[in-house]
C-alpha cells in the first residue's frame, strides 16, 4: 500500500471516528451516566450531597461514587435503578438536563411565556449573577405592565431592536436551569430592579438616548434605569 493510500484511509478512519463521537454525544446528550463530566454533573453531585446520598467530592466527574449515589436516590424514590440520570430521575432531582430544541418545553418550563423569557435571560444575561438574571426577566415583565410597551411577553421581547439576544439569534439557544429559575422567580413577582424598564452594559452601550437615562441601580455588568 503506497503512502497516499495510507493517508486517505487514515483520513477516512479519523472522519468516521469524529462522526461516531458526534452521534454518540448527541444520543447521550439527554442523560448523565458514568463517564459524563461538566457543570451538570457538578450540579447533580451538589444535589445528591445536599440530600445525603453522595459523600464524595463535587468535581464534575460522574464516577463510581456518583453512580452509587444515583442508584441509591433512584431506589429511595421508586425510580428504575440503573445509575443513569434520565428525564425521570432528573425531574425527581429538580434538574433539567435535556438538550431539547429552543421553544419546546423543558423540565419545569411549562408555559410558552416562561420558556421564551428563560431563553431571553439565557441570551442576554449569561454570565451575570443570579440576581442580574432575575433583573433582566423583571425588566421584560415591567415593560409588559407599562403602557409604553407591547402588553405581552412575546410582544416586548420581539419588539424591534429591543434586545441584542433577539437581533443576534442568541435567544434561540436552549436556556440552562439557572435561566429558567430566574425567569420563574421574576414571574413569581421578584423584581430586583424595582420597576426599571431599561438596562444596558455601560462598557458596550453606544445609544445616546439610553445613556442619557438616569441609572437606578447596577447589578453585575448591567445598569438598570
Amino acid at each position: 500500500m503506497n503512502k497516499r493510500k495510507k493517508t486517505v484511509i487514515a483520513l477516512i478512519i479519523a472522519a468516521s471516528i469524529a462522526v461516531c463521537a458526534f452521534l454518540a454525544g448527541t444520543a447521550f446528550a439527554d442523560t448523565l451516566r458514568r463517564g459524563s463530566t461538566g457543570q451538570l454533573v457538578r450540579e447533580l453531585q451538589t444535589r445528591l450531597k445536599r440530600w445525603g446520598y453522595y459523600t464524595g467530592a463535587v468535581d464534575g466527574v460522574f464516577g463510581a461514587g456518583t453512580e452509587k449515589a444515583v442508584r441509591l436516590f433512584q431506589k429511595k424514590n421508586g425510580l428504575t435503578v440503573d445509575g443513569i440520570v434520565g428525564a425521570k430521575t432528573a425531574a425527581a432531582l429538580g434538574m433539567s438536563i435535556g438538550s431539547s430544541p429552543a421553544g419546546s418545553s423543558g423540565a419545569g418550563a411549562s408555559s410558552g411565556s416562561l420558556s421564551l423569557l428563560a431563553r431571553l435571560v439565557h441570551g442576554e444575561a449569561r454570565g451575570e449573577p443570579y440576581k442580574g438574571k432575575v433583573a433582566v426577566a423583571a425588566v421584560v415583565l415591567n415593560r409588559v405592565k407599562s403602557a409604553s410597551f407591547p402588553n405581552t411577553v412575546a410582544g416586548v421581547i420581539y419588539q424591534s431592536g429591543a434586545f441584542d439576544a433577539v437581533s443576534d439569534g442568541q435567544i434561540n439557544l436552549s436556556p440552562d436551569q439557572e435561566s429558567i429559575n430566574a425567569a420563574r422567580d421574576a414571574m413569581n413577582g421578584w423584581d430586583p430592579t424595582y420597576g426599571c424598564l431599561y438596562y444596558y452594559n455601560p462598557r458596550t452601550a453606544t445609544s445616546r438616548w439610553m445613556l442619557s437615562r438616569p441609572v437606578i441601580l447596577t447589578i453585575g455588568n448591567h445598569a438598570f434605569c
Binding site: A147, S148, F149, P150, N151, G161, W209
Partner: peptide, 25 residues
C-alpha cells in the same frame, strides 16, 4: 388592543412610538 399589536409589528424603534403606544393603551 389591535393597534398595540400592529405597532409591535412595524420595525420602528421604541423611542419613536413609545408615546403613541402609551396613548393607545
Amino acid at each position: 388592543g389591535a393597534i398595540t399589536a400592529l405597532l409591535g409589528r412595524i420595525p420602528s424603534a421604541h423611542a419613536e412610538n413609545a408615546a403613541l403606544n402609551r396613548l393607545i393603551v
